[in-house]
Design a protein around this nucleic acid. Structure first.
Lengths: 232, 232
DNA sequence: GAATCATTTCGACGCGCGCCGAAATGATCT
DNA sequence: AGATCATTTCGGCGCGCGTCGAAATGATTC
């Protein structure tokens, strides 16, 4: 029989979860903090939706993934930052030719600070921006979603966003999005995407090539301090 | 077929290695940085020596373990600090009731600083002590082992160690021991154990209860600075 | 309400691998 | 040299699990 102290953590259970190639592919796909629907993860892992469903269920039960259900879609993301650290520690050891160059460390840091998540802004900057909207009463939170207040309507219109047009889009005006790197909800949906687009147009932010990372420009830094009292 | 970027590290291979209960037990047994012989690891994992041998070979080939052969014994240890970090990241996530309390973090730090490894001193302090002996010419290194110099003989005798008696023991007078927390060899063997024992007798160091960790006393701190120019 | 789509459940197949007994190798001790 | 011990190699057994097809469930769209 195996000798086990009560304090011995059950490493094998955690490791075995990631130890399957399909599940590992899923974890890698989620490494950047996005939440992806089950079907997309199946496609990325190269397995059928049924198989992916079983894997996702096991990863969820093992507390490696969190799930957010939106209608018929199930969005999965890394459960928390400890999981992200674990995946990174594995990547640091994995026999990949290109692991862990200094450039990649930089890339990870940049990605954590700000990135696009579908159309909207995520990372520290996305969370801070959303926080500022809430603090200034432009957004309210109700029933787990964001609501644009009257004051918010005025500000967003002044900012150059046509709210009425956004309301006619198929997707919801606002949506909450969550990622592990900040562990807080930030603004998504049509408005989230519109804010990001406007920030790009105003040259407050710029895309980092070959990446979903976003760089805050000098102009953007000044503007955010001036307009929203946000210091970066 | 599975979609894989060239940059996708092969997490599954690494994770699968730790994902087996027996191999996980081996990794846990080595978490404190010791090097243990294959048979001992088999016993701890609760498996036969043949089975352990196969597991150890796979862990070695996967660069998770390093091996040092001494006669008929094969001493295995964690390959490097990245592996240690990985094991710790897993332990932080494993569904063990007692993982990662602040007290345990302290314990790990203490263990890293100084501990007994069989009879001798390991950890940062063990390495520093050995370094001081080498720097002052008390020990020489030849053919991968330590040799007590003439000057060393004088100093160790003054220190209260009967070298002639030690030479009559069955185990070698000196032996090199290696651990991941410092990645450098330190003095083991009969002399290593005698030095540790003498330090205990002189109350330079004291055992931490319920642990192999060792605490440097105030008296020890003063003495090491005075006798060996070592500052901690 | 019917059609479509995302996801899950069920069932069955097949293979990989963890396991040990037996035996070989190589080192140490008497 | 012979005995003992640590470890490895080989061979074969058995089961756990990753896989997918078929079908169910539930949400969305027309």
């Amino acid at each position: 029989m195996r000798i086990r102290n009560a304090t011995d953590p059950d490493l094998a259970a955690v490791a075995a979860l990631i130890g399957d190639p399909s599940r590992a592919a899923i974890m890698v796909a989620l490494m950047d903090g996005r939440a992806l629907p089950a079907g997309e993860l199946a496609r990325r892992a190269g397995i059928s939706p049924q198989t992916a469903s079983a894997h996702l269920d096991r990863l969820f039960r093992g507390n490696l993934l969190a799930v957010e259900v939106q209608g018929r879609h199930h969005y999965f993301r890394l459960h928390d930052e400890r999981v992200a650290r674990l995946v990174e520690a594995m990547a640091a050891l994995a026999p990949s030719p290109l692991t862990r160059t200094p450039a990649q460390r930089d890339a990870a840091r940049t990605l954590r600070f700000a990135r696009t998540c579908y159309g909207h802004l995520a990372g520290a900057m996305g969370v801070a921006l959303t926080g500022a909207f809430r603090a200034r009463g432009y957004l309210d939170e109700d029933d787990g979603n964001f609501i644009v207040t009257a004051a918010g309507g005025g500000w967003f219109n002044d900012f150059g966003i046509d709210l009425d047009r956004l309301r006619q889009e198929r997707r919801p005006l606002t949506r909450r999005c969550l990622d592990w790197s900040e562990r807080r909800h930030h603004l998504a949906g049509a408005l989230g995407a519109a804010v990001a687009m406007r920030c790009f147009d105003l040259r407050w932010i710029a895309r980092v090539r070959e990446s979903r990372a976003v760089r805050l420009t000098d102009r953007g830094r000044d503007a955010l301090r001036r307009e929203l009292d946000l210091a970066f």
